[in-house]
Structures are given as C-alpha cells and as structure tokens.
Design a protein around this nucleic acid. Structure first.
Length: 420
RNA sequence: GGAGGGGUCGCAUAGUGGUUUAGUGCGGCGGUCUUGAAAACCGCUAUGUCCGAAAGGGCAUCGCGAGUUCGAAUCUCGCCCCCUCCGCCA
C-alpha cells in the first residue's frame, strides 16, 4: 500500500509504475473514489458536528416543548446523515479495494521486461560442473540412492507429493542447521513461527487480496503461509517499535505451503516445485530510508551467496525485470543454481525489498529522532529453500557410479563424505 | 467442546443512556522553587482523518463489527482475544 496523499500528488509516477510492472491497475478510478470519499466524509462530519452540538443542548434545555422540537429536528438530521453514510460506506469499500491494489514503484535500476525471461544476469559464480559421463537428473539419482519416494508421496499426498528418505533427510537437517549457523554468526535472531495464520497477515504482506488462489485456506478462514515472511512481518502488526531496536534481523525456519495454482504444467516431476517445502528465510525491518533498504538488500543477497559458496554450488545472480516483480516489491534479485541435467540455471533464492509498502498495511511504525511516527522499511530473502536446493546439490556432486559427494561444509552434520 | 468471568487514554483504575470535550493515580515531558538534587506546586501528555499558509478547528477511535436512540464506554446481537473450572488431547 502506498500513501494516498503521495498517489494524489504523484499520479504520473504511479502510472509509470503500472506500465513498467505490466499491471492493469486503474489510477484514475482510485483518484475518483478518493475525491468522493473526501467530499462525503466532510458532509457526514458536518452533520455529525451539528448533532453533537444539539445533543449537548438537549441535555440542558429545561423547557419540554423546546426540547421536543429540537429532538424532532435532529431526527431529520440523523436521517440525512445515515443516507450520506450509506453512500460513504460504498465509496469507502471501492476506495479500500483499489488502494490495496496499487503497485509499489520499481527502483530505477530495475530493467524493463514482461516476465522472468527478461531478467538480467549480473553475476556468475563457480565452475559449471564438467562431467566425463552423462550426468543424471536428481529424480533418477535420488530414486536409485533411495533418497526419495515419489510414487508413495503421490499416493499419500497427491500431485507433487514426495517422501524424502535416508540421507536426504539428514541432508535436509544439515542444510537447515548450516544455514541457521551462518545467520546466527551474523547476529540474526532466530524464529520458528506459526504458518497457520490469520488473513490480516497475508493482507499486510501483500499476498491478499490478490493471490488467494495460491494459498491453502482452512475451514476457520485462516491460511497456510507460503513463506515465513508472512508470520514474521505479522509479528509487529499494529505496533510502534522502539527506534533503538532497529534494524530487526530475523532468521526464520518454517514449512511453506503453496498451491501452485498458476503453474499446473510446470515442473510436474521431481523436487523443483512442490506444494510443501521448508525454508530458512531472512527478514529485515529497518528505518525508513532508501539507502538503508538498498544496503540491507545487498547484504541479504551477499548472505545467500555466501551460503551457496559454502556448498560450492555454481550459480548466477539475476536482477528481476519489472514485469516479474510482485505488487509490493521495489527491486528483487534471484539466485539461480546450475542444474546439469537441464543444462540451465534454476531459481533457488529470491531477495526483495518493499520500502514501507508492507509496514503501511501492517501498521508497523517507529518514532524517529524528531518524534514523528514513520512506517518501517521491510525486506526479505531466501537463505535456503529445501528440498529444491537438493536438486542442484545432488546433481552437481554426482559421480560416474551414481554416488553423490557430500559438500564439505555439511559433512560434520551428516557424518559421511559420500552418499552411495 | 461445555460453564462462568473479563477486555477503558503508556501502566493501573473510575465510569450501567445526556455537565465524559473519558475522571483519578502512576509514569513521561516542560516549568516554578533550589548551589545542585529531591520534595512540593503548576502546566502538558494518544492515533487517524479532513479544512487551513499558520494559529487553530471539525470528525472518528473505550477489543472488532452491526443495531437501538435526538444522543452509546454505558443497552442489544455477532465475532475476536484473555482468565478460571470441566472434558478431550501430542
């Protein structure tokens, strides 16, 4: 959500953001509703002021006839106020719905483009593994090593279901621990949050009202979060946080649930795209300052890169084009890991900042040094998502005999050098 | 799941239809006094929104939402949360 005053005064900036993000948002419709809202609000306020004034008179008037007359008059004022209020209520609903859909403004460094095919590579790290044999895909490798059972996963859970088994289970725990350790060394605060969350948290982070079809909903009208960003941002919902505690740096482990409603045909096999996965997520709340946001954005990317480098998984970094940004995102980097069996890079990390877009919806504020209330800035980014990370990990470290070398950094957790 | 109690301005509390523009205490801020401090005394003490250049003013907010009324913190209904007891339970 953006400041309505800002939108009023910077209509063209919003229109440009709409164009760049390939959004279908109608700024004029919002401004029209806004004008009506202000007009009706002031009419209702005036009628109410009239009632308030009369009300205190009524309580003091001794003469009964005079009082009854005034009460009669006020009945009429009340009726016309209620009519106006009904009008206002409808305008407000339109206004709120539109305001929730205004896209945030992409940074000037974000390239033009319609979708992920136009994201721009800005860095490549590591040597793409060279094999003197034909590398296998993770499905074959992991099935042969009894690390996964898709058949029974689907039997039990349905489409995109999976069981991890044996070393893949240990490997998962190792990855999570390793990631947590890196972040904790960096001064992050760890959280294990509820992912069964109320709608306001999704509204606040921008996953609602648009995006409901990608969420699992319970019979109590709660939703399962697709990322720990949702409960973590909800943590300070409707709070004024002390300035001297900023920035908050959270490292959050959680299961993640996604319906993948828009991607039925994509990645139907294997561990790339599943309904239920686990993520170690970085979440930052910092002071409302663009440079501060930019610095943290770079830092979150650096942390994720450090994780990938510690496992020696080759990857590249892309800057997402405007059309591939979410509604609230100002700028986003993806890390894509090299997947030998596909001969291409696949997304494993996503790191973005929002300025005060989320904080405004969540009403998370702090008092600046001059005593003014400001909305915090927020950022979040993957540190590692599993089991997806297993795909490049298993594939890049496979050997001719079908065994898999365990990355050095994970060996202490696994207690072995090789999976065979 | 059942029964009962409760949610008021940072905290604590008063307040069962109209002098409540929500009182009081504590805390916080400013001031008087003082060599300094304490005490005492005086004043201030939220958020949102609209009008206004500003000064200032209107309106809303007593968990949330709806209703009754000329008028609601106060009455009615629904929901949320907390507490106590019972039941179930990893």
């Amino acid at each position: 959500m953006l400041d309505i005053k800002f939108i009023r005064e910077n209509k063209e900036v919003i229109k440009e953001a709409v164009r760049k993000k390939k959004s279908d948002f109608n700024v004029e419709a919002l401004l029209e509703a806004d004008e009506q809202r202000i007009k009706l609000t002031s009419e209702v306020d005036n009628l109410r002021a009239c009632q308030n004034e009369a009300s205190s008179k009524i309580s003091q008037i001794q003469d009964e006839t005079e009082r009854d007359n005034l009460i009669e008059q006020m009945k009429e004022v009340k009726n016309s106020r209620e009519k106006k209020e009904e009008e206002l209520k409808q305008v407000m609903e339109t206004w709120k719905n539109l305001l929730l859909k205004v896209p945030n403004i992409p940074d000037s460094s974000v390239p033009e483009g319609k979708d992920d095919s136009e994201n721009q590579e800005i860095k490549i790290w590591g040597d793409r593994s060279k094999f003197d044999f034909i590398p296998k895909g993770h499905i074959e490798l992991m099935t042969d090593l009894k690390l996964v059972d898709f058949e029974r996963g689907i039997k039990v859970s349905g489409f995109r279901g999976y069981f991890l088994k044996n070393e893949a289970v240990l490997l998962s725990f190792a990855i999570w621990q390793h990631a947590m350790k890196l972040a904790l060394e960096d001064g992050f605060t760890s959280l294990l949050p509820p992912v069964l969350d109320r709608p306001e948290n999704f509204m606040g982070t921008g996953y609602l009202p648009d995006g409901e079809e990608d969420l699992y909903k319970t019979q109590d009208n709660d939703y399962l979060a697709g990322t720990a960003e949702v409960p973590t941002m909800g943590y300070y919902f409707d709070e004024i946080v002390p300035l001297d505690r900023l920035p908050y740096k959270f490292i959050v482990f959680s299961p993640c649930y996604r319906r993948e409603a828009g991607s039925h045909g994509k990645d139907t096999q294997g561990l790339i795209r599943v309904h239920e996965f686990y993520k170690v997520e970085q979440v930052i709340l910092c002071e409302a300052n663009h440079q501060e946001s930019v610095n943290w954005h770079e830092k979150l990317l650096a942390n994720a890169e450090r994780f990938m480098q510690s496992l020696k998984i080759p990857y590249r970094v892309v800057i997402n084009c405007a059309g591939d940004l979410g509604q609230g995102q100002v700028k986003k980097y993806d890390i894509e890991a090299w997947v030998p069996s596909e001969g291409k890079f696949r997304e494993t990390h996503s790191i973005s900042y929002f300025h005060d877009f989320q904080a405004r919806r969540l009403n998370t504020r702090y008092r600046d040094t001059e005593g003014r209330l400001r909305f915090v800035h927020s950022l979040n980014g993957t540190l590692v998502a599993s089991p997806r990370i297993l795909v490049p990990l298993i594939e890049n470290f496979q050997q001719a005999d079908g065994s898999v070398v365990v990355p050095e950094a994970l060996r202490p957790y696994l207690g072995k050098d090789i999976i065979k």
